[in-house]
Structure formats: C-alpha cells, structure tokens
Design a protein around this nucleic acid. Structure first.
Length: 426
RNA sequence: GCGGGCGUAGCGUAGUGGUUAACGCGUCUGGUUGUGGCCCAGAAGAUCGCGGGUUCGAACCCCGCCGCUCGCCCCA
C-alpha cells in the first residue's frame, strides 16, 4: 500500500515476538566477550565519508556503490556507517588507545547501512557484531578472533560448517601475485564473461570464484595465492591453523577466499552455515588488517577483526529451531470494576510494583468476563480483583489462575504494605 | 545495477472477467445480576499493493510504479 507509510526498502521492524532472538544474541555476545576478555565500544552511526573512502577503499563496491552519503546543514560530508572497522580504528587513534596495554580487544554491535538490492538476509540496514583486536601481529590473535566468532555461533545453536580460512599475504607479495594472475588471464580475456572482464581490471582476485560457465575452463590452471605465499605469511598461517586445530574449530583452507575490503592482509576467514543453499549465507567474516591504522594517519599498528550479521544469525537460529526464552509473564493481572476506582487501582498496582511484583492493570469499563480473558491471555499467575463490593469493604479478591482457580480475600492495605502473602497465595 | 516469481482484512488462505469479495486464526462484544482457559453467537476489520489502460463490466486481462522474494553482482 503505497498510500500508507511503510518502512523504507530494505529495512525492517523488529516486533516484540522477535525480540527474544535478539536478547539471546545479546546474551551470547556478552558471555563470549567476557570469556575472551573483550570490552565493549560504541562508535557513531555516521562518520566522515572520507574515513571509509580512505579506510575501506575507494574502489570497493561498498564505498563506490552502496554507501549512504549526505551533506549535513553545516556542509560536512558524512556517511552512514557501511562497515565497522574504520570507525573503531579511528576511535583507537582519537583516544590514544596505543597507550593502553596492547593489544586492545574490543567488540560492538552496530547498525550498518548499504544501498543494495534487498534479499532475504541482505538488508539496507543491518546489525553487525564486530570484534577488533588492535596492536598485535600474533597469529594466535587471529586464531582467537576466529574462535570467538565460532564459539558465539555455537552458543546460539547455529549449525556452522567448516570455517573457511585463507591468506592473501602482505601487500607487496600480493601485488606481485596479482600481476602473475593477470598475466595468466590476459590471453583469454576476450573469452571471459563480462563480469570477469570487469574483475580483471578492478578486482582480479575475484576471477577465481566466478560462477559463470565461460570462466570455468581457466580456473583450474590459474595460479593460486595460497600456494605461493611469502615465507612469513605461510608461517603465520601455519600457526593460525595449528591453534584452530587445538581449539577444536573445524576449518578448511579455501584458496578462493577473497574479502571485499582493501585493507586486509594475511589471514582472511568466513563462516557459513552448514548445508547452506542460499547466496547470502555468510554469517560472518573478517581478517587481519595490519595497514589500516597507518593508512588513517597513525603509527604502523597491526590488527585483526571480524564482522558478523546478526539478522543472518537469527535467520539460522530460526531455521535450526533454536528455542529462545520469551519475557516472563506478569505476576498479577489487576481486574477492577468499581466506579471511580482509579485512585485505589493505581495505588495498589504501584505498591505491588514497588515490591517487585509485576502488575498489568485491566481496562476501565470492561466487563469481568473480558478482563478475565485478558488476564488469562497475559499469562499472569494471579488475578487480583477490585470490584465495587471489595473496594467498599477494603479488601481484594486474589485468584490463582493456574491452579484450581481458588479465590480468597485479602485486606487491600495489608497487601499494599507487604506482598509476601500475595506471592504465596493462595 | 541485471534477470525470474509473487502481492486479496493484523496473520494464513479461497475466489482467475459479471450481483453487497469468502473461510480459518486473531481482535472486540455477548451467552441473564461480578469470574478466564473449552464451546457457542454476533460485530468490527479489505480503497483486492499503488496508478493508468482494455471492457457494458476488472481482485481476475495489459502497461508503469512500489514492495517482498529467488538467482547474478556484491556482501554480513
């Protein structure tokens, strides 16, 4: 109905029924962060657009085609955060975190905005669970970060497949490799798909995971980066694998794994659900970005991190029929029928709440029957009835809705003063 | 950005050119004075996604737009 307002394309409302899933994810994140010693950081939902142009890379799709850029009333060019890492790197520099004990372990959950054609599991606004470890080049940190995401998903009952692990080496060796790759493809350029011809210019690493029929014959013989890593990168990856092995994180080396941002080096990884049949399956991914902080004007500072899409995680939880706890029902549903009972009703409800009793109040003017129906639907254990008769006599009727439906009288003032008897009732 | 499918009350569906668009769930109100869950009855709730066209007549046929969805691109 375009006549009525609707949520902007690619955005969604999280209705009350869905909130338990979000709460479950929040709890899992809190617990895993505690276990691994990560502290929470929150950064703004928008940043200088140039932070992403510089940090994420000006030729990446995210920056070039998908970023929400706007100019504010003061003329500043800003961007809604399309990804999490540059903002955190910026905060690291801005707040002198280099003088904190290194490395700095941080996590956050953050809204991300990307102008893209929406699909299930791909939205224009989505939420990411982000972890970043800044100030260490230790391969054990790489393994730790991967493990952290894996454990989070495990804790949430999400059935992940193997962790896909790769290495894209350091900048110098990678450039040399890209030249070798282009040399290999150049003679066949004419015969490649249009997409791959574009990739040849813009993102040669992507040539290797083309799905187009026409490109298949050339993939086999193409040089693979993981097969010719520099000795340093190879040794680094060996340690990562050894540590993942020891941590019981099942993984596989994926020679075709490429990440979308410019700043990655060495370790890259991705976690996809087991028997994933959809295109937007990736639950999370990340890698090492030793050059980013320096690129943003800081001292050379190694770092490692990941982003994981919470909407996708929840989609998986639902697919796996993971049970999540809903909110507890109220303790008491307060039914009232007296004329002009607003004051008594409000006072009793307030007194009970002050003692920690959860109270939902029935609607004025509705029949007993109707209010009892509401009481039942609310899931409350007790109905407290303040009818005309009771209010006049200064008592309340307390009825147990779950058990036999027994009912007894309690003086209103006693109940308001001390809810202990009510809790025990009847 | 490219290609395919879909769009009927809050939700799930029926109706595929011809009288006041149907059913289930849900909501509300009742089933004799003030008592829930089950049951029964009634009511409210739909400009048939929006706009235009064809036709005596359109939810139904055609076009455009919007939204969802699947694949590609890309990504979480």
């Amino acid at each position: 109905m375009s006549a009525r307002f609707q949520a902007p394309r690619g955005t969604q409302d999280v209705l009350p029924d869905m909130q338990p899933y979000w709460a479950a994810v929040d709890h899992a994140i809190l617990e895993v962060a505690r276990l691994f010693g990560y502290r929470r950081i929150d950064t703004p939902q928008f940043e200088a657009a140039s932070l992403f142009v510089k940090g994420s890379g000006d030729t990446t799709d995210i920056v070039e085609k998908e970023m929400y850029v706007f100019e504010d009333r003061g003329g500043d060019k800003l961007a809604l955060t399309p990804e999490g890492t540059p903002g955190i790197a910026r905060a690291y520099l801005e707040h002198g975190m280099a003088s904190w004990p290194q490395p700095v372990r941080l996590y956050t959950t953050h809204q991300m905005f990307r102008y893209d054609r929406p699909q299930k599991g791909r939205y224009r606004q989505h939420t990411q669970f982000d972890c970043e470890v800044i100030g260490s080049s230790d391969a054990l940190v790489d393994a730790e970060v991967i493990q952290l995401l894996y454990r989070t998903l495990e804790l949430l009952g999400v059935n992940t497949g193997l962790v896909h692990l790769g290495s894209i080496d350091d900048l110098g060796p990678r450039r040399a490799y890209v030249e070798r790759l282009k040399d290999y493809y150049r003679p066949h350029l004419e015969k490649l798909s249009e997409d791959s011809q574009r990739r040849f210019e813009r993102n040669p690493l992507r040539l290797l995971d083309s799905k187009d029929e026409r490109d298949q014959p050339y993939k086999e013989g193409a040089p693979k980066l993981v097969d010719q890593l520099s000795p340093e990168a190879e040794a680094h990856m060996d340690v990562v694998r050894e540590a993942l092995e020891a941590a019981n994180v099942p993984h596989v080396v994926d020679p075709l794994l490429v990440r979308g941002l410019d700043y990655y080096n060495r370790t890259v990884f991705e976690i996809v659900p087991v028997d994933d049949e959809r295109a937007q399956g990736t639950l999370g991914g990340g890698g090492r970005y030793d050059g980013l902080i320096e690129l943003l004007g800081g001292p050379p500072t190694p770092a490692m991190g990941f982003g994981s899409g919470i909407e996708r995680i929840i989609l998986e939880m639902q697919k796996n029929e993971v049970a999540v706890a809903g909110p507890a029902p109220p303790d008491v549903f307060l039914i009232h029928r007296a004329e002009g009972a607003a004051a008594v009703v409000t006072r009793v409800a307030g007194a009970l709440r002050a003692q920690g009793v959860a109270v939902v109040v029935g609607e004025t003017g509705r029949s007993m029957k109707s209010q009892f129906r509401s009481a039942d639907a609310s899931g409350a254990r007790l109905a407290v009835i303040l009818g005309e008769d009771e209010v006049a006599r200064g008592v309340a009727l307390v009825k147990d809705l779950r058990a036999g439906g027994e009912q007894r009288e309690m003086p209103i003032e006693d109940m308001a003063a001390d809810a202990t008897a009510l809790r025990a009732a009847p």
